[in-house]
Amino acid sequence: MKKLDVVTFGETMVLFNPEQMLPLEYNHRFMKQIGGAESNLAIGLQKLGHTTGWFSKLGDDPFGRYIHQFIRGHGVDTSRCVYTDEAPTGLFFKEKRSPTNISVYYYRKNSAASLLASEDLDEEYIAGAKFLHLTGITPALSESIRMAVFKAIEIAKKHKVKIVFDPNIRLKLWSREEAKPVITEIAEAADIILPGLDEGEIMTGKNTPEEIADQLCLKGDKTIIVKLGEKGAYYQAGSDKGYVDGFPVSQIVDPVGAGDGFAAGVISGMLRNEPISEAVKRGNAVGAIVVGVNGDVEGLPNNEEVEQLIKGAKDNQDVKR
């Protein structure tokens, strides 16, 4: 079996993206795209030159086949995907009133992905990866897929596969009270945690990047990277810690998916054995590029584009000095 750099799984839905910035009830034309944190990550890493695998349970319907073909078309291994005729593929719609005022409406309850269960996992497939990537979205979908997440963690631990966890807390899916114990348990098992500032506060009760990282590190030797949006990120890996500035963005077109791009950049840096500060810089660069393009995956850059942004920023700093 081919060894992959990263394996991930979760729900990807068909996205209907409006062509105009109007309230949703006044939009009549939409672009059909896809969106899902885990597949965004897999495609992002694939475009950066790494090998990835993504799997899910898809509806045996045209939307399920579209998602499968789209992700596979980007070079991601989808060989562990399964189809079901017991539930449909999930959908969601974006509403854009302005570039910074975006709402998302999900139609995913009892979707095909929510039927994924522990018996759908392939232990050898997960065991062969360098990283297992998980998000906090997946365990919120159903009890069966939540158990699959913990089974995947068990497999990764058994085979010494590093676990990357992006909390991605979606309060439209579950309450803070429901989410916190599950997210905390996954975080305790993870080697690398990538919370946003708000997510870190939910997880730890702390409200500064330093305090959040310190609290998350109480449960073992971990790498914590707290995402700070346009300000960049704060990282802590043992005694190595610090802030990494974000990259200036001239125009925000669509901020959705930037966090997934950031995660792809960070993991790419780790796969390249870069110092943690450089891996975070790479994550910041990918995130800055993603927000300038409409769609969850369409703006994910290749490695040349990332290197150009990093080099351009460095050259500007050298000129200012």
Rank of each mutant, 00 (worst) to 15 (best):
K172W: 07
N168T: 10
Y234I: 06
Q317A: 15
R29T: 15
G136A: 05
V82Q: 13
I43R: 03
V182N: 04
K130D: 06
L216C: 03
E274Y: 12
A152S: 13
S250R: 14
H28Q: 10
G53M: 05
V256R: 05
N110C: 07
E188N: 07
G257R: 03
L22S: 05
N273I: 08
L228K: 12
I212L: 04
A233V: 05
E119I: 04
E154I: 00
D318K: 15
I212E: 01
E123F: 00
F93Q: 08
F30K: 05
A37N: 08
P181A: 11
N40Y: 12
G44S: 09
R146Y: 08
L132F: 01
D191I: 02
A117W: 05
D254W: 03
I34T: 08
D245I: 01
G220N: 08
G90C: 08
E304H: 12
R72L: 11
A152V: 01
I252K: 11
G59R: 01
A140W: 02
V182Y: 06
L41G: 01
R108G: 04
D315I: 15
D214T: 09
S142G: 08
Q20D: 11
E201A: 13
V293P: 00
K227A: 07
L45W: 10
K3E: 15
T51R: 14
E201I: 07
T8N: 01
G35M: 07
N17L: 14
Q251V: 11
E124F: 09
V226M: 09
V266T: 10
E25W: 11
D61V: 05
I224V: 14
K180R: 15
I252E: 11
N284F: 12
Q236F: 10
V291F: 05
A113E: 05
A129R: 00
A148V: 02
E177L: 12
N17H: 09
V161H: 00
L132N: 00
A148D: 01
I155N: 02
Y107Q: 09
I310Q: 14
T208S: 15
I252R: 08
Y125P: 02
I193M: 03
I102E: 02
M21N: 13
K227H: 11
T135S: 13
S114C: 10
D77F: 15
W54L: 03
H28P: 00
S114P: 04
F63Y: 15
E154Y: 02
G73F: 09
L194H: 03
V249L: 06
G259M: 12
P139L: 11
